[in-house]
Design a protein around this nucleic acid. Structure first.
Lengths: 196, 196
DNA sequence: GTCTATATTGCGATAGAC
DNA sequence: GTCTATCGCAATATAGAC
């Protein structure tokens, strides 16, 4: 390639490769070839393969910071949960590799887990927990529900749908056309499940 | 080690290693050392590292076959779903590495994905789908719910709880003592969410 | 900044003795 | 069945020319 986008080219090429095969499943040669850049540029810009992986992870997880908006938005608690579900779906549509990095780090943690992955996911969970507690204090929700169990249930419903896509693709329609219906079904179940 | 349990020793040692680091994250030397067996025994018994991985995966996923019992059991549809949730929890307690193999294959599929992983998971999904359709025909459930969305939502609630444990362990109590409460909460949400 | 060439290490697999 | 020793290769990383 040999232009001034070298660094960006490498990152862009690395995303689908790391996502599909994990940190240990890709070699620097493969990464360089896919980027159309010289092998040694990976060390030059990122200090090695692990450095590149960390850069990719940081970029991928950056969007998770937007979860903060949920706290600042002045809407009903249930609507906050719907906002979370909608944001999750649109995130996965825009960043089709995000969920893979996310779960790959959960199951086969790398050195980045403690520094990048864990804080990013924890922030999401804590934001949801805060919203739930808020809803509880307004006496909107049944008070015999455990906050953690409940928000993890909601997060699980939407995340698992995407996680299982490689298995269920030929029996379930996972096209974006159905996203609106999916969101409705999940919010339906959740709403009836948690309201007083 | 050098006893007649060589094959079994290798498999037993390989389970936690493959689960933690994935197929590409472990070397045959590391596997042999952990098993206390000679390196060459891996090729002798399994034809190589990938063969050992396939053997481990087959053994781990064998328990998933028990899902069939749900079809044969003559109980109410909702109770079938509760049976599934209970079976899932007890499976993860008995096989603490199962979920890791499961999701690792989903996010970073190996050669085993099409032959071992996908059929195993698909069977579970289809069993749940069948149970749901059965419940629909008995007019137990709201008929505006999509079967796939609904069963994936239930599966997601319980699986995600365990998947997120590495992140939420210090903010949520994941001890087996709470399993019964967890199951109750999930079934509560699900039941209220899907019943007419 | 970018390249080639290479240093070095560790990999998976197996030949062949016992 | 189990071992040691080793083959051949691919890995990451970098030195040094330009």
């Amino acid at each position: 390639m040999a232009n001034n986008d070298c660094r960006a080219n490498i990152i862009a090429a690395a995303i689908p490769l790391f996502a599909a095969k994990g940190l240990n499943g890709v070699s620097v040669r493969e990464l360089a070839r896919a980027a159309g850049e010289n092998l040694s540029m990976i060390s030059y810009y990122f200090g090695g393969k692990e450095g590149l992986y960390a850069a990719v992870l940081t970029e991928q997880f950056a969007v998770l910071d937007k979860i903060e908006e949920i706290e600042r938005t002045d809407i009903d608690t249930l609507q906050k949960f719907e906002l979370y579900v909608r944001a999750t779906v649109s995130r996965y549509r825009k960043s089709p590799y995000l969920l893979r990095f996310y779960t790959s780090e959960l199951t086969n943690p790398t050195a980045c887990f403690e520094t990048i992955t864990k804080p990013a996911i924890k922030k999401v969970v804590q934001t949801l927990l805060k919203a739930f507690t808020e809803g509880l204090s307004h006496e909107k929700f049944r008070d015999d529900l455990d906050p953690a169990d409940t928000v993890l249930a909601l997060a699980g419903m939407i995340n698992f749908y995407f996680l299982l896509e490689p298995v269920t693709a030929d029996v379930v329609d996972h096209s974006p056309d159905r996203d609106e219906v999916l969101i409705r079904h999940i919010m339906d179940i959740f709403t009836r499940g948690v309201l007083k």
